[in-house]
Design a protein around this nucleic acid. Sequence first.
DNA 1: TGTTTGCAGATTGTTGACAATCGACAACGC
DNA 2: GCGTTGTCGATTGTCAACAATCTGCAAACA
Lengths: 256, 256
Amino acid sequence: MPVASAPSRRVADRAVDANHPIALLQSNSLPTLVQRELERMILAGDLAAGEQLREVEVAAMLGVSRGPVREAFRALEESGLVHLEKNRGVYVRQIGVHEADEIFELRALLDEFAGRRLAATATAEALAELRAIVAAMDAAASAGDVDAYLAANIGFHDRLVALAGNDKLLRVYRRLVNELHVFRRTSLARGDTLPASTREHHDILKRIAAGDPDGAGRAMRAHVDASRTRMHATWARAGGASPAGAPAAKRRRAAS
Amino acid sequence: MPVASAPSRRVADRAVDANHPIALLQSNSLPTLVQRELERMILAGDLAAGEQLREVEVAAMLGVSRGPVREAFRALEESGLVHLEKNRGVYVRQIGVHEADEIFELRALLDEFAGRRLAATATAEALAELRAIVAAMDAAASAGDVDAYLAANIGFHDRLVALAGNDKLLRVYRRLVNELHVFRRTSLARGDTLPASTREHHDILKRIAAGDPDGAGRAMRAHVDASRTRMHATWARAGGASPAGAPAAKRRRAAS
DNA sequence: TGTTTGCAGATTGTTGACAATCGACAACGC
DNA sequence: GCGTTGTCGATTGTCAACAATCTGCAAACA
């Protein structure tokens, strides 16, 4: 209960803050928290593509019973991050280069749309914000800090799409980016590709700031297509199709 | 076990058909079947937007225990068809006009892409298939059969997108269309809008068959934008924002 | 030696029981 | 009459137990 600070306000008008333990407990169930934690672990690379997640282990690790874990698995499967196979277990999904290509193709479309929209609607505040993110990326590239660069890169694109003002677009986009995250090789950007990537970001920002929808859309698409090309180069250099140790040949039956 | 029909084939080489009861049992769990049935009921309108789904009732209706129902609910929530609220229950989602607008905006983008792709790649078989669907739509429009028209309309767009050849696009598209389905008013197309809609389909097909990506893309976008405009007209005539009887005001807390 | 059979252990799938939460309604007090 | 408190029933959240499935390995057999 909040401490009384204004005698003129009735107790009933003073709701607790959303971060108050009471509110947190009322709005979060175990399956939701398990889902979030597993998603975090998958996106952070703590759980590898193809890795099996055993209910009993996950439940023990998180201190819950198997029920909430099973529920979380169902949600994670629907979001594309894991794959259930009846009677055989749950596996972190593996994304092959073909699927990555499809995601890039879609991303190019969505990023272009966002760029065009922003070129027409961006406020001074939005531009300042994007400039700050690009500056942080520049700093990371200069320092050769690939991890920091990637984090800022993801943040840049996410913010661009968020500023486009279509929430449904943002949700679809985030889901695609999460799936692409599972495609581990794409996250292994190398220091020698950062300069090109950085130039592309500047180009995008310049055209958005100039209020040039056609130019911004083209720059966004060119950037995503170039990222896709860089992905292929990295993939080829790493040896192409590698089953990554997953028991793919053993899993013949359909899911759940 | 399959009946021996060719003595030259070893028993181990004769897998059962995917529709054999053994294969069906091995590849389908109760939560998956529950999910499918509830999804079917929601899309068919058997479960109304805003309607509460009680675990015990659903379990009794489908003859299973609550566990698989709960798991199905998690998947359905992630797919956007229902909404869980901790300690209060599960509700078929309600889509407002703002969200419908966002979906239409996205659809226009995706449909345009599909149209452009098809104009460049469609085979004679694909064109024949699309022509057959458009002919079926014509017949339904002539007969004033709105339901048959809508079914064929959904089939036409789905097939168009499927033929574009990007599986990820198709999955995203289907998810959006399913969500739009929950927006009940859009399914209430009236007989007097069918002629315009029919002309638009013919225009799309003509440009795809002509191998005109720009024209096909424009025609697709124009068609989706016109559908959106018709949606608004229907919405306005029906009285605009109507909470559809859902206990919206009572549900203040966040989901699960 | 290669193949088949049987068994045990690991894991998943489902169910039912108990605990917890919430809303509605009746009873009580001012 | 209105506001507060208490109770009950409906429903959800979680857990543990049991059943079922699958895989790997050892033993038996040809």
